[in-house]
Simulated scan of single mutants.
Amino acid sequence: MILLENQTDTAIETAHLEPIAKALTDREIEVILTDDATIRELNREHRDKDKATDVLSFPLEGDLPGQPLGSLVISLDHVVQKAGELGHAPEEELALLFIHGLLHLLGYDHETDRGEMRAKEAELIRRFGLPESLIVRTEGGE
Rank of each mutant, 00 (worst) to 15 (best):
D35F: 06
D36E: 13
D36Y: 10
A37P: 07
T38P: 08
I39G: 04
I39C: 06
I39R: 01
E41N: 12
E41Q: 15
E41F: 12
E41L: 12
N43Y: 06
N43V: 05
N43D: 04
R44G: 02
E45Y: 13
E45Q: 14
H46T: 08
H46P: 05
R47K: 12
K49E: 15
K49I: 15
D50G: 07
A52W: 04
D54E: 14
D54Q: 14
D54A: 15
V55I: 12
L56F: 09
S57Q: 12
S57Y: 11
S57D: 12
F58M: 02
F58R: 02
P59E: 05
L60S: 03
L60D: 01
L60A: 02
E61R: 10
E61K: 09
G62M: 03
D63M: 04
D63T: 05
D63I: 04
L64I: 10
L64Y: 13
L64V: 11
P65E: 08
G70Q: 07
G70V: 06
L72Q: 05
L72D: 00
V73H: 02
V73L: 00
I74W: 04
S75H: 14
L76G: 05
D77G: 01
H78L: 06
H78P: 02
V79E: 11
V79N: 10
V80H: 00
Q81E: 15
A83N: 00
G84T: 08
E85W: 12
E85R: 15
E85F: 13
L86Y: 15
G87K: 03
G87W: 03
H88M: 06
H88S: 05
P90I: 04
P90N: 05
E91M: 02
E91D: 01
E92K: 04
E92D: 10
E93L: 08
E93V: 03
E93Y: 08
L94W: 02
A95Y: 07
A95S: 08
L96S: 01
L96A: 07
L96C: 07
L97R: 13
F98L: 04
I99A: 01
I99C: 06
L103Q: 07
Y108H: 03
Y108K: 03
Y108W: 02
Y108V: 00
D109A: 14
D109T: 13
H110V: 14
H110K: 15
T112F: 04
T112A: 11
D113I: 07
G115D: 10
E116K: 00
E116I: 04
E116L: 08
M117G: 02
M117A: 10
R118I: 09
R118V: 13
E121T: 08
E121G: 06
L124T: 07
G129M: 11
G129V: 12
L130K: 05
P131Q: 11
S133F: 04
I135Y: 12
I135M: 15
I135D: 13
V136F: 12
R137T: 14
T138P: 01
E139T: 11
G141L: 08
G141F: 09
G141C: 05
G141V: 09
